[in-house]
Each structure stands twice: as C-alpha cells, then as structure tokens.
Design a protein around this nucleic acid. Structure first.
Lengths: 145, 145
DNA sequence: AGAATCGTGGCACAAAGTGGGAAGAAGTGG
DNA sequence: CCACTTCTTCCCACTTTGTGCCACGATTCT
C-alpha cells in the first residue's frame, strides 16, 4: 500500500521520477499507468489495473448518471496513458503539466492504490486551508485515535 | 506497552536510534514502521500494524468527515514508511526532520502503542506551556488518581 | 572490577535522484 | 509529400542521500 509523502522534482522536460519507495510497491502492476485529475489542481497516477477497476465500477452506473458523466469528462480531459521508463520516470501529459503546475518541486503522496502529485507550494496552501483544531483533536480522541 | 521517556540523539544523517527498552517491546511488530505527525511539531513512530488499524478505524467514517480528511491530509503530508536497520535505527523522513527539528537531542516517549519524538528543547517549552493546574489535580482526585 | 550491552560517530560503498545530450517519433506548415 | 520544428525517449554521467559496517566510549549489571 502506498502511504506518505516524498518530495520530488519534475524536470524541464516534464518528467517525474517516481520515488524508489513507491516504485518498489508499484512494480507488481507493470509499467502501464494512467495519469489524470478530476480538477486539474493535482495529478493522480494510477496503475492501469487500478484505473480499470475504477472504470468497471463506473460502468455499473447508469449512463445518465450526471456525476459519472462529469467525472469521466474531466478525467478524460486531463488523462493520458503513460509508461515508466527504465529509470522509473513518467512523463506528465502537457495539459496536466500546465494545469497542475507540474514543474520544479512537487510532493508525491501515496493514497494506498495510487499516487497524488501536487506542486509543492500549492500543496502547502492546501494544507493551510485545513488546520487541525482543538475540536478536531477532541473528535479523534473520542474515536480512539 | 510503551511507557516513559528516554532521551536519545538523531545523528547527522537524520537517523534515530530507537532506545533498546522500546525496541525490545516493539520487536513483535516486525521492521516496518510508519513515521508521521499531525502537526509537524513532533514525530510519531507507529508499528505498521498499529497504523493500519488506525487507518481501518478511519475508513469506517464517511469520506466527507472533515476531521478525518484533515487528519489524513496532514499525516500523509508528514508521513513516510520506514524500516529499522540491523542496529535499531530509523531514518526520519526529510520533511519531518525539518518541521519537527529532528536533529541533535530528542526525547523519545512511549505512548502505549507508538512512540512520540520531540526535539528536546521544544519538548521543554511544551511542558512549560501545559502545567498541571489545581483544577487538573481536582479532576484527577475525583477519578481516584 | 570485568563483562556485556548500548549508544554514537565515522567511513566507504550503494542506491537514488538529477540533469543534459542526442537520436527518434510525431506533428505542422508550406 | 517533404522539410522543419517540437516533443519524447533513451542513454550516460554526475551529485546527493542513504545504508551497512565497524570500532570506540559510556553505562549497566553481575
């Protein structure tokens, strides 16, 4: 399972080196990945199999389901199938590279079955937006966490 | 169960030697650990199994639960899976090393199922900020402690 | 006091990350 | 349909970071 955050860089050519710790975990899935986003604020990197499962879940929904349609429209817009190269790098598709500001310093976070990549400064802004309050701590405490 | 406080040091390379007393207690859990923090003020070292249990507790909550989301956002940001080496050391991930000032003297405290590590001088400040008040003593007394 | 264990630091090797060049492929415009 | 440009991919080399190993010093236990 993919967990935690490893800082990385996207080079001039839009290539992202997948941190070794994640690559190790992902190597059971082959070289095929699907890179996309729902919003364009970040990039999500799915092993192709994981994405296909997600697709088949969607397929069970009615084709008139608005939410499903929207999701597919956006993920299609930003999406592209990619392969990792021999040095463990993937090329971020230009559309997403632009939208999610995939250049320079980025944070690569594990989300159990896929990776989520944020532009580093955008990631910080995002954190600031969700501070943990004393109230939150109390709730967590009640849950035994 | 992990209890008490043992001073330790983080070396130049960001490695923390887990005090032998705690290591003994932890050896049933294997070499995999998850190092993270909610706030970045300290580091928490969870045996992977303990962390996974915590994750599954969270999984039972709605994905719209704000507190859960915040908690995961932060712990994911600071988190990284690590292994203890043959000498009982773990590498503190760079992000946390920076945020929680994991260098030089630190205090390693047992919290029953995980360890909490504070920069020593920060730990002192923290203690001073939360003195036990007469009010607290009264409450403890009522609880028969 | 002696033996054993624990913590600490240093060093050397290995692995991971980074960047750049050049060849190849794809796309564009004349 | 060809020439040119741009983007991608592959490969190599350098730098940084992490890891394993060993040895010394301190501490504890007997």
């Amino acid at each position: 399972m993919l967990r935690g955050n490893i800082p990385a860089r996207v080079d001039e050519k839009g290539r992202l080196k997948i941190p070794a710790a994640f690559l190790e975990e992902l190597k059971g899935y082959g070289e095929q990945f699907y890179v996309t986003s729902e919003t364009g604020d970040y990039a999500r990197i799915f092993p192709m199999k994981v994405w296909e499962e997600l697709e088949s879940k969607l397929a069970r929904l009615s084709s008139h389901n608005q939410t499903k349609q929207k999701f597919l429209t956006w993920t299609n817009y930003y999406g592209q199938a990619v392969e990792v190269d021999s040095q463990g790098r993937v090329l971020i598709p230009p559309v997403l590279r632009e939208a999610a500001q995939m250049k320079g310093d980025v944070d690569v976070m594990g989300h159990l079955t896929y990776l989520e990549v944020w532009n580093h400064s955008r990631s910080l802004e995002n954190l600031k937006k969700s501070p943990i309050t004393d109230e939150d701590l109390k709730i967590l405490d009640e849950l035994g966490i």
